[in-house]
């Protein structure tokens, strides 16, 4: 907005609920649960891509694993007629994210791409965002972690290694989005559908995960989101997640 706007116009604008301007992109994901086999390839890919530390056996046992995406398992029915169901659970990048307003220092907020982002170096570690998150999608660095040789050689230079006391969570591999947008800007165009894929989407063997721009009506995500099987997890909380799950009931 320009500086010449009168105070009255500014007031009107800032009193608007929702976001200031239309998102450039509105990144979203569709997860087809009927295709998910629970193989955890996405979990591993995420671990490698985003420099997630390995907390060790003790850390895992006390419930402090750092995972940006996890496969939740639910048993359905009684033995012997029993079924195992999977839900890959990651940050839902809610439009009305409960985690954002609670941060006292703006370490988490909504950016112009419609992503719920976490600024690691701004985080002071109140952990309120994790407490407020109904999806438990946030992980906390209880300690500073080191990578034994030669594992440190595989750290991704595009992603910060987080310090102790910092909250972290799925970013939809924002470093890849940034790369794609950078290339697109050089060529003076928008990012094409399918040009950018988070690590989990890229590694899914059954292509249960699809990623794309929800602002583009022709993208694979927008089309899949129209699917009648679609639902949002904990929709009744009005968080309006960006991730749509497909499940045949």
């Amino acid at each position: 907005m320009s500086d010449s706007d009168s105070i009255k116009e500014k007031w009107k604008k800032y009193r608007n609920p929702g976001y200031q301007d239309k998102f450039d992109y509105s990144w979203g994901m569709v997860i087809d649960l009927d295709r998910c086999t629970g193989c955890e390839a996405c979990v591993t890919a995420c671990q490698a891509e985003n420099n997630l530390p390995i907390v060790g056996e003790e850390g895992f046992r006390s419930g402090r694993e750092i995972k940006w995406i996890r496969i939740e398992r639910y048993w359905d029915g009684e033995y012997p007629d029993i079924k195992l169901r999977f839900i890959p659970m990651l940050c839902q990048h809610c439009d009305n994210a409960p985690c954002e307003p609670v941060c006292p220092v703006y370490a988490t907020y909504h950016n112009q791409d419609g992503l719920n982002v976490q600024v690691y170096n701004r985080c002071i570690g109140t952990r309120s965002c994790a407490a407020y998150c109904p999806y438990d999608a946030r992980s906390f660095n209880w300690f500073s972690f080191t990578w034994d040789k030669p594992l440190d050689e595989q750290l991704n230079p595009d992603v910060t290694v987080r310090e102790k006391g910092v909250m972290e969570k799925c970013t939809f591999c924002i470093q890849r989005i940034r790369q794609a947008k950078d290339t697109a800007k050089d060529q003076n165009r928008r990012v094409r559908d399918g040009e950018v894929q988070p690590a989990c989407v890229q590694s899914c063997p059954t292509q249960a995960l699809v990623f794309g721009d929800r602002n583009d009506p022709d993208s694979a995500v927008s089309k899949l989101a129209q699917n009648p099987r679609g639902y949002q997890v904990l929709k009744e909380l009005n968080t309006n997640p960006s991730i749509i799950y497909l499940k045949n009931l």
Binding site: D24, Y106, Y109, N111, Q112, L115, V117, V119, Y120, N121, R122, D158, V159, T160, I174, Q175, R178
Partner: peptide
């Protein structure tokens, strides 16, 4: 453009 967005410069 987006020059004051945190994730333009932070990673």
């Amino acid at each position: 453009e987006n020059g004051r967005d945190c994730w333009t410069c932070h990673k």
